[in-house]
Design a protein around this nucleic acid. Sequence first.
DNA 1: TATTGTTATACTCTATAACTATA
DNA 2: TATAGTTATAGAGTATAACAATA
Lengths: 148, 148
Amino acid sequence: MSRASASGAGRAREERSPAREAWALLAGLVHSGPPPFIVVARELGLRPPALGTLRALDEPKTMSEIAAVLYCDNSNVTGIVDGLEERGLVSRTPSEKDRRVKLIALTAAGSRVRSRLMATLEEPPEWLSKLSTGEQRALRDLLRTAVE
Amino acid sequence: MSRASASGAGRAREERSPAREAWALLAGLVHSGPPPFIVVARELGLRPPALGTLRALDEPKTMSEIAAVLYCDNSNVTGIVDGLEERGLVSRTPSEKDRRVKLIALTAAGSRVRSRLMATLEEPPEWLSKLSTGEQRALRDLLRTAVE
DNA sequence: TATTGTTATACTCTATAACTATA
DNA sequence: TATAGTTATAGAGTATAACAATA
């Protein structure tokens, strides 16, 4: 029996799924260093959910929208925004259209903190920077295709 | 002035750094759905740090090693392992070489939970599965290069 | 009635510091 | 002395349920 024993369709010279291998390789690369998000959170003296809230505030958002971004219950956002408000990083104002809704927006100080955060997160990791420019372009083009 | 105004070396036809764009595209793809790790944690009734501990236990590890994987203080691991031990998912036994050290190992039940976890995490996301096989191979090869 | 956000509660995660038991 | 792990403490994150205000 020299035929492949894997479960895939009947393709000669069976190979391990390239998608699965790519995904495993990517996980290994991404987890190879300290998680940037946690590192930045410590530098800024904020906890990850608070930082995730700042990241989401590219424009003002409601409490519910923030809960959706954080994948947590609505009730948690109250405390998280409370903390950010006490630090003077966000403001909380009722919407004029529907007074049940509160709009959370960055203050000037919050905008500065968010800029520092985004600058760090947008910095490519070492494994990516060390690829050749041609390889970086090839990767970029593949990811553009994936985004469609 | 038709020359590029960006800060890079003097290359004609300046382009945005392909590494930065690739990194931004990747972040967008990875954050496009609910975080699998959090989803699985809820399904299994475990919190992310407890799940991260199980994931790390491909073989027995010390408390300190687990703390390093979780990027948290040593003292936190006590409570996390306590919870896993109460659920019968891990065992805690002193090392024979150095009795200060405790070795944490999966039980049979813990091994089953870890298998379910890993099966989910290893599943490629939709954006990757929908690439053509050729594109998947090209991505895999690029990532192999990055790993070296 | 339904929805947005808050409060109350209980539990988990987290860092710091002090402690123990080994080395 | 130094190290591995624990305990104590205080504060933040989390889900559930009940609630107030608004729609």
